[in-house]
Amino acid sequence: MNNKSILINLIAVVCFISCKNKEAQEPVEEVKANTFDVIVDLNIQKDDELILFYKDASIAYFDEKNTVYNGVKGKPEAQTVTFSVPEGILPNDIRFDISSKKDQQPIKINSIALSYSGRTFKIEQRDLLKYFTPNEFINFDEATGTASFTEKEGNYDPIFNTKPAIYVELEKIENIKL
Protein backbone atom coordinates (compact mmCIF):
# COMPACT_ATOMS: atom_id res chain seq x y z
CA MET A 1 0.00 0.00 0.00
CA ASN A 2 1.33 3.41 -0.86
CA ASN A 3 1.15 6.51 1.35
CA LYS A 4 -1.71 7.99 -0.65
CA SER A 5 -4.04 4.99 -0.14
CA ILE A 6 -3.10 4.79 3.57
CA LEU A 7 -4.03 8.45 3.95
CA ILE A 8 -7.37 7.96 2.13
CA ASN A 9 -8.19 4.91 4.30
CA LEU A 10 -7.26 6.82 7.46
CA ILE A 11 -9.51 9.74 6.48
CA ALA A 12 -12.37 7.33 5.73
CA VAL A 13 -11.99 5.65 9.16
CA VAL A 14 -11.91 9.02 10.97
CA CYS A 15 -15.03 10.16 9.11
CA PHE A 16 -16.80 6.89 9.92
CA ILE A 17 -15.93 7.10 13.64
CA SER A 18 -16.86 10.77 13.75
CA CYS A 19 -20.28 10.11 12.18
CA LYS A 20 -20.84 7.13 14.49
CA ASN A 21 -20.09 9.29 17.58
CA LYS A 22 -22.53 11.96 16.46
CA GLU A 23 -25.30 9.35 16.17
CA ALA A 24 -24.54 7.99 19.66
CA GLN A 25 -24.88 11.36 21.37
CA GLU A 26 -28.13 11.92 23.23
CA PRO A 27 -30.23 14.84 22.04
CA VAL A 28 -29.87 17.93 24.18
CA GLU A 29 -33.18 19.21 25.53
CA GLU A 30 -33.50 22.97 25.32
CA VAL A 31 -34.02 24.53 28.73
CA LYS A 32 -36.35 27.51 28.67
CA ALA A 33 -35.69 29.61 31.74
CA ASN A 34 -38.31 32.28 31.05
CA THR A 35 -41.49 30.24 31.02
CA PHE A 36 -44.45 30.79 33.29
CA ASP A 37 -45.03 27.47 35.05
CA VAL A 38 -47.96 26.01 36.93
CA ILE A 39 -46.72 23.18 39.15
CA VAL A 40 -49.36 20.86 40.55
CA ASP A 41 -48.54 18.37 43.33
CA LEU A 42 -51.26 15.71 43.30
CA ASN A 43 -52.20 12.10 43.87
CA ILE A 44 -53.80 10.56 40.79
CA GLN A 45 -54.57 6.84 40.62
CA LYS A 46 -55.32 6.36 36.90
CA ASP A 47 -53.62 7.63 33.77
CA ASP A 48 -55.20 10.84 32.51
CA GLU A 49 -54.56 13.95 30.49
CA LEU A 50 -54.65 17.22 32.40
CA ILE A 51 -54.96 20.54 30.63
CA LEU A 52 -53.99 24.08 31.55
CA PHE A 53 -55.76 26.83 29.63
CA TYR A 54 -54.22 30.29 29.74
CA LYS A 55 -54.95 33.70 28.34
CA ASP A 56 -53.24 37.07 28.29
CA ALA A 57 -54.48 40.59 27.60
CA SER A 58 -54.77 39.84 23.86
CA ILE A 59 -57.17 36.92 24.42
CA ALA A 60 -60.73 37.45 25.66
CA TYR A 61 -61.73 33.79 26.17
CA PHE A 62 -60.01 30.50 26.89
CA ASP A 63 -59.52 28.56 23.66
CA GLU A 64 -57.89 25.36 22.43
CA LYS A 65 -54.99 27.26 20.90
CA ASN A 66 -53.77 28.50 24.29
CA THR A 67 -53.43 25.25 26.18
CA VAL A 68 -50.75 23.06 27.67
CA TYR A 69 -51.55 19.34 27.77
CA ASN A 70 -49.86 17.00 30.19
CA GLY A 71 -50.35 13.24 30.08
CA VAL A 72 -50.05 11.80 33.58
CA LYS A 73 -49.37 8.21 34.59
CA GLY A 74 -51.46 7.14 37.56
CA LYS A 75 -49.63 5.91 40.65
CA PRO A 76 -50.37 5.58 44.36
CA GLU A 77 -47.85 8.17 45.58
CA ALA A 78 -47.90 11.93 45.08
CA GLN A 79 -46.37 13.32 41.90
CA THR A 80 -45.61 16.72 40.45
CA VAL A 81 -47.02 17.81 37.10
CA THR A 82 -45.56 20.95 35.50
CA PHE A 83 -47.37 22.97 32.85
CA SER A 84 -45.03 25.42 31.08
CA VAL A 85 -46.75 28.20 29.17
CA PRO A 86 -44.82 28.97 25.95
CA GLU A 87 -41.88 31.28 26.43
CA GLY A 88 -42.73 34.97 26.18
CA ILE A 89 -46.36 34.60 27.28
CA LEU A 90 -47.39 35.89 30.69
CA PRO A 91 -50.95 34.79 31.45
CA ASN A 92 -53.41 37.07 33.22
CA ASP A 93 -55.75 34.14 33.84
CA ILE A 94 -55.61 30.35 33.90
CA ARG A 95 -58.03 27.44 34.01
CA PHE A 96 -57.13 23.95 35.15
CA ASP A 97 -58.95 20.98 33.61
CA ILE A 98 -58.22 18.30 36.18
CA SER A 99 -59.43 15.18 34.34
CA SER A 100 -60.26 14.01 30.84
CA LYS A 101 -61.28 10.44 31.79
CA LYS A 102 -64.86 9.73 32.89
CA ASP A 103 -63.73 6.75 34.97
CA GLN A 104 -61.07 8.69 36.92
CA GLN A 105 -60.75 7.99 40.64
CA PRO A 106 -60.79 10.97 43.06
CA ILE A 107 -57.69 13.15 42.70
CA LYS A 108 -56.06 14.74 45.74
CA ILE A 109 -54.48 18.13 45.11
CA ASN A 110 -51.67 18.79 47.61
CA SER A 111 -50.63 22.19 46.24
CA ILE A 112 -50.49 24.38 43.16
CA ALA A 113 -47.54 26.70 42.57
CA LEU A 114 -47.28 29.52 40.06
CA SER A 115 -43.70 30.29 39.07
CA TYR A 116 -41.95 32.75 36.80
CA SER A 117 -38.40 34.10 36.66
CA GLY A 118 -37.41 32.86 40.13
CA ARG A 119 -40.59 34.09 41.83
CA THR A 120 -43.11 31.53 43.09
CA PHE A 121 -46.52 31.68 44.71
CA LYS A 122 -47.57 28.39 46.30
CA ILE A 123 -51.19 27.60 47.11
CA GLU A 124 -51.40 24.94 49.78
CA GLN A 125 -54.24 22.42 49.88
CA ARG A 126 -56.08 24.27 52.68
CA ASP A 127 -56.17 27.47 50.56
CA LEU A 128 -57.23 26.02 47.19
CA LEU A 129 -60.78 27.40 47.40
CA LYS A 130 -59.45 30.92 48.08
CA TYR A 131 -58.00 30.95 44.57
CA PHE A 132 -59.96 28.38 42.55
CA THR A 133 -63.62 27.46 42.08
CA PRO A 134 -64.53 23.90 41.05
CA ASN A 135 -67.28 23.66 38.44
CA GLU A 136 -70.43 21.51 38.59
CA PHE A 137 -68.54 18.36 37.48
CA ILE A 138 -66.35 18.40 40.62
CA ASN A 139 -67.29 17.50 44.17
CA PHE A 140 -64.46 19.02 46.16
CA ASP A 141 -63.67 18.04 49.75
CA GLU A 142 -61.92 21.09 51.17
CA ALA A 143 -60.68 19.23 54.26
CA THR A 144 -58.74 16.63 52.27
CA GLY A 145 -58.13 18.53 49.01
CA THR A 146 -59.81 15.71 47.11
CA ALA A 147 -61.78 16.20 43.92
CA SER A 148 -64.23 13.52 42.82
CA PHE A 149 -66.05 13.77 39.54
CA THR A 150 -69.58 13.53 38.22
CA GLU A 151 -71.10 13.37 34.79
CA LYS A 152 -74.11 15.63 34.15
CA GLU A 153 -76.55 14.93 31.32
CA GLY A 154 -73.87 13.03 29.41
CA ASN A 155 -71.29 15.80 29.82
CA TYR A 156 -67.97 15.53 31.65
CA ASP A 157 -65.63 18.51 31.96
CA PRO A 158 -64.16 18.96 35.48
CA ILE A 159 -62.57 22.40 35.66
CA PHE A 160 -61.06 24.63 38.32
CA ASN A 161 -61.60 28.28 37.38
CA THR A 162 -59.66 31.06 39.06
CA LYS A 163 -61.07 33.51 41.56
CA PRO A 164 -60.14 37.23 41.55
CA ALA A 165 -57.72 36.71 44.48
CA ILE A 166 -55.27 34.97 42.16
CA TYR A 167 -54.87 37.98 39.85
CA VAL A 168 -52.95 39.91 42.51
CA GLU A 169 -50.59 36.97 42.92
CA LEU A 170 -50.11 36.70 39.14
CA GLU A 171 -49.10 40.37 39.09
CA LYS A 172 -46.55 39.79 41.87
CA ILE A 173 -45.02 36.74 40.19
CA GLU A 174 -44.84 38.37 36.79
CA ASN A 175 -43.75 41.66 38.39
CA ILE A 176 -46.16 43.61 36.20
CA LYS A 177 -49.53 45.29 36.51
CA LEU A 178 -52.23 43.37 34.68
Score class of each variant (00 low, 15 high):
residue 1 M to S: 11
residue 2 N to S: 14
residue 7 L to G: 01
residue 8 I to A: 11
residue 10 L to R: 06
residue 13 V to S: 06
residue 14 V to G: 05
residue 16 F to G: 05
residue 17 I to M: 10
residue 18 S to R: 00
residue 24 A to L: 15
residue 24 A to C: 06
residue 26 E to L: 13
residue 26 E to V: 01
residue 27 P to S: 13
residue 29 E to Q: 14
residue 29 E to W: 11
residue 33 A to Q: 08
residue 36 F to P: 06
residue 37 D to S: 15
residue 39 I to D: 05
residue 48 D to R: 06
residue 49 E to H: 00
residue 50 L to A: 06
residue 53 F to I: 01
residue 53 F to G: 06
residue 55 K to W: 11
residue 55 K to S: 07
residue 56 D to P: 01
residue 56 D to W: 12
residue 58 S to G: 00
residue 59 I to W: 05
residue 59 I to F: 04
residue 61 Y to N: 14
residue 62 F to D: 06
residue 64 E to Y: 06
residue 69 Y to Q: 12
residue 70 N to A: 13
residue 71 G to W: 12
residue 71 G to M: 05
residue 75 K to N: 15
residue 75 K to S: 14
residue 79 Q to D: 04
residue 79 Q to R: 08
residue 82 T to C: 03
residue 83 F to P: 01
residue 85 V to T: 08
residue 87 E to L: 01
residue 88 G to A: 04
residue 89 I to T: 09
residue 96 F to P: 00
residue 98 I to L: 12
residue 102 K to V: 08
residue 104 Q to K: 07
residue 106 P to I: 03
residue 107 I to A: 02
residue 109 I to N: 03
residue 109 I to L: 11
residue 112 I to R: 02
residue 115 S to K: 15
residue 116 Y to L: 04
residue 118 G to V: 14
residue 120 T to E: 15
residue 121 F to E: 02
residue 124 E to V: 09
residue 129 L to E: 00
residue 130 K to M: 06
residue 133 T to W: 10
residue 133 T to V: 12
residue 135 N to D: 15
residue 136 E to N: 08
residue 136 E to C: 00
residue 141 D to M: 08
residue 142 E to N: 06
residue 144 T to A: 04
residue 144 T to F: 08
residue 147 A to Q: 04
residue 149 F to I: 11
residue 149 F to V: 08
residue 150 T to E: 12
residue 156 Y to M: 00
residue 157 D to L: 15
residue 157 D to N: 13
residue 159 I to C: 09
residue 164 P to F: 02
residue 164 P to W: 04
residue 165 A to D: 13
residue 167 Y to D: 05
residue 168 V to G: 05
residue 168 V to K: 09
residue 171 E to I: 00
residue 171 E to S: 07
residue 178 L to M: 12
